[in-house]
Amino acid sequence: MRTPFRLLLALLFLSSTLMQGQSDADYQSFWVHEDHVKPAMVNKYENVNKKLVSELKAHNIQDEQWITTQTDDYRYLYVGQIDNMASLDRPVFASLAEKMGSDKMGSLFSEMNDYYDKHFDYVIHLDKKLTYMPEGINQTPEGQDFRKFYYVYTTPANRGKLAENFKKIKKLYQDKGSKVSYRVYRSGFGAPEDYFLVAIAAKDALSYEQQAVANRSLLGEEAKPLFDEMSQYMSGMEVVTGTMRSDLAYSPKQ
């Protein structure tokens, strides 16, 4: 992500935050860098990314940190927490370039350009009020690397109604003591459409399906009118399966 984009993102994101009256208690924001990798180039793409992570670890770069998800449709999502606006307004990988040399680092990114068709950046907001994780919100629960993502698309006119519907669904999960937890994100600046993203973690695909079946039985007939109501405020839905990739993530040593 280039610095001019960061500056624009900071200004627009700040404006959006002020208009919506968001508070740190209810929301946590994240930047997302998304690469759409050519299927035949996956191995080469990952090798370059592993070299990048190796360099970051070797120099213990302190000002970079992200988690990584690989989806079944060859998308790679790099997600990093935004703690304040200053975290957006900075040259990315500047510390790494200083340590390893800008030419060497530049060659890594130049090589990577050959391996994907498109890439872009955007912001998402974790909505803590809509999220259901009784044991505490955690993006990377231990031993649960499988992911199911539900992109629930909506329109500006229906965004608020859909949010109220999510509150009703969360209450049903709470009342029933559901064992299936989930996180809800709202799309932010740079996202191509308005959506709510529901992220569910599980050990693997089989565990996910077993949990889903048990949960449908637990929620019973009370769930149907809520999901019928949801369909009224949706403009579409996309279901994506993914896997957390700790080998392509980076977190500095303290």
Score class of each variant (00 low, 15 high):
T155R: 13
L248H: 06
S181I: 00
S15C: 12
K44G: 01
V48F: 04
Q22Y: 05
D24C: 10
L11D: 09
H125Y: 08
Q211P: 02
G190D: 12
L14D: 12
L206A: 13
S107R: 09
A214W: 07
V48C: 09
E142L: 08
S181R: 10
L7T: 12
L12A: 09
H59K: 12
Q22P: 00
K38M: 12
G101I: 01
M19D: 05
M85C: 07
Y150K: 00
A25M: 10
D228Q: 15
M234S: 10
K171G: 04
A40N: 11
P134N: 06
Q174V: 10
K167T: 07
D114A: 09
G106A: 04
D117Y: 05
I67Y: 08
D83K: 15
A25V: 15
D117T: 11
M85L: 15
A214S: 14
L130H: 01
V213R: 10
M237Q: 05
Q22W: 09
G106C: 06
R147A: 00
K44E: 10
F227E: 06
L126E: 00
F5E: 12
L206F: 09
N165E: 13
I169M: 13
D228C: 05
R245E: 05
P4M: 05
Q65R: 14
K44D: 05
D72W: 08
F196P: 04
Q139E: 13
N138E: 14
I200G: 00
L219I: 13
S29E: 08
Q211I: 04
A10W: 04
G101Y: 01
G21E: 08
A214D: 14
L248Q: 02
T71M: 02
Y173W: 11
V152L: 13
L162P: 00
F189E: 13
K118C: 09
V152R: 03
D26L: 05
Q22A: 03
A40I: 07
V152K: 03
F13D: 09
D89M: 14
V180C: 10
P225T: 08
R147D: 00
E209D: 08
D89Q: 10
A199E: 09
V213Q: 09
A205D: 13
Q139R: 07
N84H: 11
Y45Q: 10
T131G: 03
K118L: 07
V37K: 04
P252V: 06
I200W: 02
T131S: 07
L206R: 09
A94F: 15
M105E: 14
N165F: 00
Q210F: 02
V240T: 00
W31S: 04
L130Y: 00
V53E: 07
S187Q: 09
H125S: 03
A199N: 13
G160W: 15
D121Q: 11
R147V: 00
E238R: 11
G143D: 10
A212P: 05
F166Q: 07
R216K: 07
F30D: 03
Y233K: 03
P134A: 05
S217H: 07
R159F: 15
P156F: 05
L88P: 01
L126C: 02
